[in-house]
């Protein structure tokens, strides 16, 4: 269902980005990259209001003609971005939320790996398979 999943570091560079292989990968790079503007805007807006108990899920960042871009920010300011096809109307907010939660859990596992150097690109196979699961699932 997701066509692109990205993990972005606190400093806004990609730790992980994977998209549906059939489509132009660079396009998703652009999509995710530009979505960071919105993420930043949302984070700063929320941050002002409720510093402690803010919602990690940012919701729909912006819709494009073909895709919907959703965002999620961990407490350590690591961003997750999921791009889904706009034609896929079956996806509800709840499903997106659960996808993010799964992603977050898997990301936590990656971070727990003592051999992983925070700030490096994620190369974990387990994480990869979780992402693959998300991309295939609804098809």
């Amino acid at each position: 269902m997701a066509v692109c999943v990205a993990v972005i570091a606190k400093e806004n560079y990609p730790l992980y980005i994977r998209s549906v292989p059939t489509q132009n990968e660079l396009k998703f790079h652009y999509t995710v990259h530009t979505s960071l503007d919105v993420v930043e805007e949302k984070v700063s807006a929320v941050g002002k209001a409720l510093a402690d108990q803010r919602e990690l899920y940012l919701g729909l960042l912006y819709p494009t003609e073909d895709y919907k871009v959703y965002g999620y920010v961990t407490n350590s300011k690591v961003k997750f971005v999921i791009v889904v096809d706009s034609s896929n109307t079956s996806l509800r907010d709840n499903e997106i939320r659960s996808m993010f939660r799964k992603l977050h859990n898997s990301f936590t596992d990656v971070m727990c790996n003592p051999f992983y150097n925070p700030g490096d690109a994620i190369q974990s196979r387990a994480f990869d398979s979780v992402v693959s699961g998300m991309m295939v699932q609804a098809c």
Binding site: Y13, P14, E25, L26, H29, G119
Partner: peptide, 8 residues
């Protein structure tokens, strides 16, 4: 290390 969107 390099920080940025390398592909872009």
């Amino acid at each position: 290390t390099h920080h940025g969107w390398a592909a872009v």
